[in-house]
Amino acid sequence: MFENIKKEFTTRTLVLIPIAIAINIAIGELVVRLKLPVYLDSIGTVLVGAIAGPWAGALTGGLANLIWGLFNPFAAPFFYVAAAIGLMAGFAGKRGAFQNETPRWVSVVVGAVFVFSLTLFILAFINASTDETGYTSYPSMSQLFSQYLGIFIFAILAGAAIGYFLLQKGGYAGMWGLITGIVAAIISAPTAAYVFGGVTGSGTDLLVAAFRASGGGILASVLAQGSVSDPFDKMLSFMVVWLIIRSLPARFTSR
């Protein structure tokens, strides 16, 4: 195990890491200039994970946030989340998610399953009720299905469309991005809720407000906000890296 970690950190990897962190920052800048409603601030991290391996990816993510913390302290406490993103990207890379083309029907299934579960999650969250003792009860699946059948069918169709037109042949990479986004949402929620009162000072706070208004607790609302915005953001990041890796000369990826 230790030997494997050491093998990831060749001179080329060490040189690649600062470049990747600078890419994170530069792309963040481009996204702001284009006024896009996403972050896409971990493309460099995912790239290192994909090219060099999980531990190099984790180091890139962690250091990126700590260095960025010198300028904006908000990033620093989330260094472990960025490290987890790099780690996941590395595992995805080891399974070939970035090199291979995915049949388009797989992308359709990935998109449909994801949007379906997201809808299920949000509806269960909105319809949860808390009694006087503070015990939260969630509605049963059959109850939700009979009540919102139209919405679920729409969600599956919309997900399938996203899979077909957006994921295209990068279905596996997109799927790994979605999973990574969910992991990131879960592990970042406690820090966001406890240290920063559940806010990020950006547009996604509107989502937190919406979930609070529908009766969710602070931690639950932050988690719900993250589960809506993070998977989509990480899916796009993984897809972009998939595109990058496929346009790289072979001598770069063969090592």
Partner: peptide, 15 residues
Amino acid sequence: KALIPLILPLVLGSL
């Protein structure tokens, strides 16, 4: 749509 033509040259050039 403008994002990809901006990101690819940046990343490929840097690598």
